Lab assay of single mutants.
Amino acid sequence: QVALSRTQVCGILREELFQGDAFHQSDTHIFIIMGASGDLAKKKIYPTIWWLFRDGLLPENTFIVGYARSRLTVADIRKQSEPFFKATPEEKLKLEDFFARNSYVAGQYDDAASYQRLNSHMNALHLGSQANRLFYLALPPTVYEAVTKNIHESCMSQIGWNRIIVEKPFGRDLQSSDRLSNHISSLFREDQIYRIDHYLGKEMVQNLMVLRFANRIFGPIWNRDNIACVILTFKEPFGTEGRGGYFDEFGIIRDVMQNHLLQMLCLVAMEKPASTNSDDVRDEKVKVLKCISEVQANNVVLGQYVGNPDGEGEATKGYLDDPTVPRGSTTATFAAVVLYVENERWDGVPFILRCGKALNERKAEVRLQFHDVAGDIFHQQCKRNELVIRVQPNEAVYTKMMTKKPGMFFNPEESELDLTYGNRYKNVKLPDAYERLILDVFCGSQMHFVRSDELREAWRIFTPLLHQIELEKPKPIPYIYGSRGPTEADELMKRVGFQYEGTYKWVNPHKL
């Protein structure tokens, strides 16, 4: 086992960053958080920038500027975001240094004079007029057009580079997404736009490419001749908990499936790229999406959770019991969808996408189930092999396979070949997804960000279904809070070829 401390991990990262040409360590950078008073800024962006600063992973002359409508001070920003920093008493001095680099400007999102004030403020910072500028839009999409237009007109660096990070949702359907994309691309070049999907920053999602293309053993079996089906799962054990009003506007397909799960599907299904260059990788992902037809209604199961009468606390409440959810809402909190990649490698292999709230566990994984062994000599005792990439929690890679049961006879039983990170790298604290992705933006690497043509294809696949749901308002199937979801989803999976045995229990190697 390799035991690495946080300091050692960050030392390795620093070495990698400083050796590259793309990370300008000594240049002045300004990180501007648009929507600095909001939840995302408070819980994710400010803490992430602090962790990067604490670990010495930001360029040395980096300033952080918050911008929002609320009249706040840096002290206010500190008060609301610091509880999420997880700072230790030993880091007190470092924390003071961090907040000394912070400033805040209040202004409207659609007022040109406010942006001119913001620009004057940035120019007044040390070497601010020639600094590289990175704008993070932690804002609702309704203000994107006004904000990007004003940034472009008043706040661009004339000497350094300018980059803009856009948070999902990128529209509600193909038409609104196209409108937003066309607007942003009329102001910024594609190499300046970073559409963030934080799932692409997760260690195991990034590991998929290495697993596939750096190991000879997987190449020959990664196709329709050997793989019976692919299941991509995202499960949350909690409901909307008072935030249903926002969720109800989008629903589970827009929230998770059309982005996170579809991105994971691309990494499983794509061909080997010409290189690890950002556009070479994204070219292959677009090719996969172009091979997927629009979702067919007979390959869809929609569910909505109801309270568990035997549960406790939140578990007793259904989705419609959330006071922020519109009365009688038919918005799905669970969806199972089957897609097919219609190309030579994957023809006929079902890709089953499942996601839901208020389920029995927290889990995100990719599961490849292989065909049955031909010419069975073990009297149907063999179960199908599976390769599982567990994204969260407890990152893991393992192969479910058959071995001989101890004893006199040739009785096979299920076991696993474990390729888990935790076994080799004991207690290594890896940077989280937002840390990686923000560092990628500083480096100018777009590999783990969504390109406009990729986004367009993703919406093309799901828009007809979303429009049909909005028009017909089908009643989702009720499922109990804390269950596996509607049984109809299991029946759909069985119908397209997935075999669920229920006889195997994964042993978490992190707890051995």
Rank of each mutant, 00 (worst) to 15 (best):
G348P: 00
C355I: 04
L471Y: 03
E271H: 05
I377G: 03
D432M: 08
L430I: 05
V349I: 08
V341R: 01
P476W: 01
V306S: 12
L289C: 07
E284Q: 07
V281G: 03
P509V: 08
P273V: 00
A274F: 09
F409Q: 15
H371P: 00
K363G: 11
D490E: 14
R327C: 11
V338I: 09
N259W: 15
T330K: 09
V288H: 02
L368P: 02
K475A: 08
D372C: 05
M493L: 13
D490R: 12
K404Y: 15
D283C: 09
E414A: 12
T316Y: 13
S278K: 04
T503A: 13
G375H: 09
V391D: 14
Y305A: 02
K400R: 15
R345C: 08
T276K: 09
E312A: 08
I469A: 07
T463I: 08
S483E: 09
Q296D: 09
H467G: 10
L466S: 07
D490V: 11
L302E: 01
S445I: 08
K400P: 05
L387N: 02
V286M: 13
A297M: 10
F378V: 02
K404S: 15
N343W: 01
V295D: 01
A374T: 12
L368R: 02
P509I: 13
N411L: 07
L430C: 12
A458H: 14
T331K: 10
L320V: 08
C382P: 10
R495S: 10
G485Y: 00
F449L: 04
P350T: 00
K272I: 11
K383V: 11
D279R: 10
S415W: 08
Q468D: 13
I352S: 00
V428F: 13
P309G: 06
A269Y: 01
N299R: 08
V441L: 05
Q296I: 05
N277Q: 09
Y398G: 06
Y434D: 13
L466Q: 12
R367C: 13
D347M: 06
A433S: 13
E344H: 11
F334I: 01
V450W: 15
L455W: 05
W459K: 13
V256A: 15
M408I: 12
E413H: 07
R451L: 02
F378P: 02
D376F: 07
Q296M: 06
S452N: 15
I292T: 12
M257S: 05
S329P: 01
A297P: 04
K363L: 10
G318T: 06
E488F: 04
M402I: 10
V388M: 14
L430Y: 13
L359E: 01
W346P: 02
Q446E: 04
Y434H: 08
L267W: 15
P476A: 07
V337A: 12
M447T: 03
C382G: 12
T403N: 11
F409N: 14
E361S: 15
C382A: 10
D321F: 03
K317A: 11
I292P: 00
M257W: 01
E435M: 12
N343C: 06
V286H: 06
V325C: 03
C355V: 06
Q380G: 12
E395V: 10
P464E: 07
A396Q: 10
Y421E: 15
N298W: 09
A336C: 09
G497T: 14
V507F: 15
L320K: 09
G497D: 13
V288N: 00
P476D: 02
E395N: 14
Q263E: 05
A458G: 14
L471M: 03
R367E: 05
M408V: 13
Q468S: 10
E472Y: 10
Y398D: 03
F442N: 02
L359P: 01
F410P: 14
S415C: 05
Y500L: 15
T330I: 07
L289Y: 04
N411K: 11
V341L: 07
Q380V: 09
V341A: 03
D321P: 01
D255N: 07
G422I: 06
E365P: 01
E457F: 03
D280E: 03
I477K: 12
E488Y: 06
I389V: 08
L455V: 01
K287H: 11
M493H: 07
N385W: 13
H379R: 15
E294T: 09
K357G: 03
S275G: 07
Y504L: 15
V286I: 10
W506Y: 15
Y340C: 05
P273R: 00
V337I: 09
M401N: 05
M493G: 10
N427G: 14
N308G: 07
Y479V: 01
V338E: 10
E386Y: 01
R282K: 09
R282I: 04
T399A: 12
I438C: 04
M270E: 01
H371D: 07
G307W: 02
T324C: 13
Y500N: 14
